[in-house]
Write a protein that binds this DNA or RNA. Structure first.
Ligand SMILES: [Mn+2]
Ligand SMILES: [Mn+2]
Ligand SMILES: [Zn+2]
Ligand SMILES: [Zn+2]
Lengths: 128, 128
DNA sequence: CATTTATTGCGAATAAGTTGCAATAATACA
DNA sequence: TGTATTATTGCAACTTATTCGCAATAAATG
């Protein structure tokens, strides 16, 4: 399965690169200049995830969000930081907060999906 | 909104009480002796969550799982432990592993949804 | 330029969860 | 014990997120 370069792929990757927040398929479709089919966006994102270029976050709303997370240089670190979901501005972002845990004997961890939910710093300040 | 005792409520609560694992609506429906409507099960579960009798876990598959988690006596602790999803036996369980984090200044955490995914101790042993 | 096949768009399918509404039944209280 | 109130239930329809089959398109390769 050799990958090919396409305008679609490039556009989605650009968007994610320039975004400070993790984006859902829906958000990506809305923010794109060009019209790209819903299914295609999902397929592009899933390929990015397979290739470890992007990581997938599943929030408490059950939806998938995608982020490049430039802070993480080593791919193996990508899955081990917290994400933050702000209920006020409805965004999800990568925190540079590592996930620390010690699982009981015999458990083998392959991935971690850790999302903290609440009010982000921007929105907290807005109130007082 | 005063709550009433019903056979449905009791049956679902019994099931959750006797289960070592977190259960999805689907799993609950299948394991129940009596036939209960899908929507009703969801409504019962949502009420349990509102009343802090049960907690809701959203897994990487985007689905909701429900657990009583008897280990947690204080309701405020309930949301601060890890959950483990085993890809081999397709179960989700509460781990007695606390979630530790220090969010950046200004962030206010209201809840945490932390799921580790991999192979549970039972399934790890089975392989070797 | 021709061939191969990864990628796309479209529509339909799947699956989880919610909602409106009328019927039922738990609770309170006369 | 009988009656009124309203929480709860079942059913069907709905919403939303994500996937899938298939035919058409277009990168890559040489
Ligand atoms: Mn991240
Ligand atoms: Mn738990
Ligand atoms: Zn915010
Ligand atoms: Zn297992």
């Amino acid at each position: 399965m050799n990958r090919r370069n396409t305008p679609t792929k490039e556009a989605v990757l650009n968007l994610l690169s320039n975004s400070k927040k993790a984006l859902s398929q829906d958000a990506i479709e809305k923010q794109l200049d060009i019209k790209i089919n819903r299914a295609t966006i999902y397929r592009v994102l899933n390929r990015f995830c397979e290739d470890d270029m992007v990581h997938r976050i599943v929030a408490e709303d059950g939806k998938q969000y995608f982020a490049i997370c430039k802070k993480c240089e080593k791919p193996e670190d990508v899955q081990y930081h917290f994400h933050f979901r702000c209920l006020s501005c409805d965004t999800i972002e990568c925190l540079q907060v590592p996930v620390n845990y010690a699982v009981p004997n015999g458990y083998q961890v392959q991935s971690a999906n850790c999302v903290l939910t609440g009010t982000c710093s921007d929105c907290s300040q807005a109130v007082g």
